[in-house]
Amino acid sequence: MAAATMSLDGYIATADNGIGHLFDWYDVGPVTVPTVTPGLTFHLTETSAGYWQRWTSQLGALVCGRVLFDVTDGWNGRHTMDVPVVVVTHRRPDDWIAAHPDAPFTFVTDGIRAAVEQAQALAGDRIVAVAAGTVATQCLDLGLLDEVAVDLVPVVLGGGRPFFGELRHRDVLLGDPTTCIRAERVTHLVFPVTQPPR
């Protein structure tokens, strides 16, 4: 599954990896949702909290690219959702690894398919999520996605980092949403991938 919070014009971050108003929905409600990250607590509406808890309770591992890893500094060695992380990279960050010896992070240098396979082995029968646009695009191109989850936010960024970049295969078909939940400042959507690339 590829999952992202996205603007109406298809962006998941600004060009400099800022978020603008994309994540306002994480702090508009009365339901306190703690994370394993010190100092980071979400305040969701009841609707968004229910969706969030159902989704995260099924999550077994996360695949991300090196840009997201670097921007977050590897979440200081423990992802906010407290799952193993597989990072697709051209070069292992040996200094970071030495500084975080207990971090449940795997660094894969032989491509996205190998990264997804390792994440699935870590996740077992739970969901593997892929995060950020470059990784999501590569997975969609290779037919590795079964769902696309979008937290659609009513903001137009006007440019930045798209959820999906240029695909080698055109017109990858998604089905009608299996989830469509309207909440304050966000609409939660999940689409099955009905015709993957060949």
Rank of each mutant, 00 (worst) to 15 (best):
D146T: 14
A121R: 11
V172F: 09
Q118R: 14
T194V: 15
P84W: 13
P197A: 15
V148S: 00
R113C: 07
E46Q: 14
V28L: 10
V135P: 00
D24A: 09
R182F: 07
T134C: 01
Q118C: 08
I127V: 10
D16C: 08
H100D: 05
A114I: 05
F107G: 02
F191P: 09
A3I: 07
I127W: 03
D102W: 13
D125E: 13
T137G: 08
Y51G: 01
T72G: 04
W55R: 11
T179L: 13
W96Q: 08
F105G: 06
A136C: 14
P30T: 05
Q195W: 03
R198C: 12
D110H: 09
T37I: 14
V190W: 09
T137N: 06
V156H: 01
A121I: 06
A114P: 06
A136N: 15
A123V: 00
R161M: 15
T134M: 13
L68P: 06
P93R: 00
I12A: 05
L145I: 03
G111L: 07
V153H: 12
G158L: 12
P84L: 10
T179Y: 05
R126S: 10
P93D: 10
G158P: 14
A119I: 02
D70H: 07
D146F: 12
T109G: 05
A99I: 06
L8V: 14
T45E: 13
D95F: 03
I12S: 06
R168T: 11
T32R: 13
G60D: 11
I19H: 04
P84I: 08
I112P: 03
L142T: 01
L189W: 07
M81G: 09
D171C: 02
I19V: 14
D9H: 06
V108M: 03
E166A: 09
L157Q: 13
T137C: 04
W96G: 13
G160I: 14
V36Q: 00
A183L: 00
T194H: 07
V130T: 08
T56G: 00
A114K: 01
V33P: 11
M1I: 14
D16G: 15
F163T: 02
W25F: 15
V86Y: 13
I12M: 04
A136M: 07
W96K: 10
V155L: 03
D171Q: 12
R182Q: 14
D16T: 13
R91I: 05
R185S: 13
A129Q: 15
I127H: 01
L157A: 08
V190A: 13
H169R: 15
L22P: 08
V150E: 08
I12E: 03
R182V: 13
D82R: 02
Q120T: 12
A2W: 00
L8T: 07
S57V: 06
P30Y: 01
R66G: 05
R185D: 10
M1T: 15
V88W: 08
P104M: 08
R182E: 15
L59G: 01
R92T: 12
V88L: 14
V31P: 04
P162L: 06
V186P: 12
F23G: 00
T178K: 09
